[in-house]
Amino acid sequence: MTSCHIAEEHIQKVAIFGGTHGNELTGVFLVKHWLENGAEIQRTGLEVKPFITNPRAVKKCTRYIDCDLNRIFDLENLGKKMSEDLPYEVRRAQEINHLFGPKDSEDSYDIIFDLHNTTSNMGCTLILEDSRNNFLIQMFHYIKTSLAPLPCYVYLIEHPSLKYATTRSIAKYPVGIEVGPQPQGVLRADILDQMRKMIKHALDFIHHFNEGKEFPPCAIEVYKIIEKVDYPRDENGEIAAIIHPNLQDQDWKPLHPGDPMFLTLDGKTIPLGGDCTVYPVFVNEAAYYEKKEAFAKTTKLTLNAKSIRCCLH
């Protein structure tokens, strides 16, 4: 018999989150649709729960009410004593943790798909938090293969000092899905179709896995975050240069030392320094102006996964 890495157990509980950011409308629209008619997301033997994560922000069509829901799922915020004085999103995070967690427990949901849009030209993107997770690498390989020839990129946010504390991190297997470009507060049919297909293929993978299909060893190309880059700023902290036209919409493309990065209003080009080629992502993302992030630098690498098969009882 072929030796293989056996994944822990079959997958039982899956959640699909929309509206973690209330103005990213593809996930909101799909989740609302699936709450009314969820036939397309159901798979035999699998509990799939669509869920609106930040209903107040969705109602106002804004990213958040008090603070970013997708950055506060750490033990400090989840452990705060519940009171009306807490920011709305912290209270909501505790409610979500109660419903789908608790985080880092045996009772937490197996998989959470968190649906997002970006204003950046990132196409279909899967966000991975753990480079050693054979199950998710296999799932992402399946999704990428199923979507081809449509490109699907994998963004690895594993980093020693950049801690995200994402909404989906309460699950055993957290999956971020990011599709763009799409303006905030807008629905685009092409973007919706791409996100819908990503979810379909992900659920198909889980179904095949649960039925005992063995997935042979595989490898995927990923883009691992190195650092986030702020806009150049003046002495008052105001933005002093904008994304250069040569960099705009060039997510995932190589940016070499000396290539144009920013452009000042008086026409001066600010190039990339250093001696390493990087791959920019979230270029000129609207939501990241407040976070002082013009783009993120990534490096390209390959992740390998062992063969996996479900432990059938």
Rank of each mutant, 00 (worst) to 15 (best):
I157H: 10
A165T: 10
I220L: 14
G212I: 03
G267R: 08
I127L: 11
S108M: 13
H141Q: 08
C61S: 12
Q250G: 14
N210H: 07
H159Y: 10
C4V: 09
S83Y: 10
M198L: 11
D259K: 05
N121A: 13
N54V: 04
K32P: 02
E178C: 09
P149S: 04
I270P: 02
P87I: 07
E178Q: 15
H5R: 15
D193G: 07
G22K: 10
D249C: 04
P50M: 04
A294L: 01
N210Q: 07
L265E: 04
L136M: 15
P257H: 04
D130C: 05
K60D: 15
H201P: 03
I239V: 10
I72N: 13
G101I: 05
Q138M: 00
C276Q: 14
E84D: 15
H141W: 04
K172Y: 04
Q182R: 02
I127P: 02
E40Y: 04
T145N: 10
K253Q: 10
P271T: 14
S131N: 06
P260H: 05
E36H: 09
G180P: 00
M261F: 00
G19K: 00
C61F: 12
K103M: 15
D66A: 11
Y279M: 03
P245N: 04
G237C: 05
L30P: 00
N54K: 04
R63L: 05
T125C: 10
T20W: 04
S161Y: 12
L35E: 08
G273L: 10
F17Y: 05
T118K: 06
A305Q: 00
M122S: 13
N117C: 10
T166Q: 08
A148G: 06
L78R: 10
R309I: 08
V278R: 03
P160V: 07
R188S: 00
M122E: 01
E84Y: 14
E76W: 13
N121G: 04
E211H: 07
P280Q: 02
D66T: 12
P271D: 11
V175S: 01
K81P: 06
A296R: 10
I52S: 01
L203E: 02
V28E: 04
C4D: 10
L86M: 12
A15K: 03
R56T: 11
I199M: 14
S169Q: 10
Q182D: 01
W252R: 12
N77K: 13
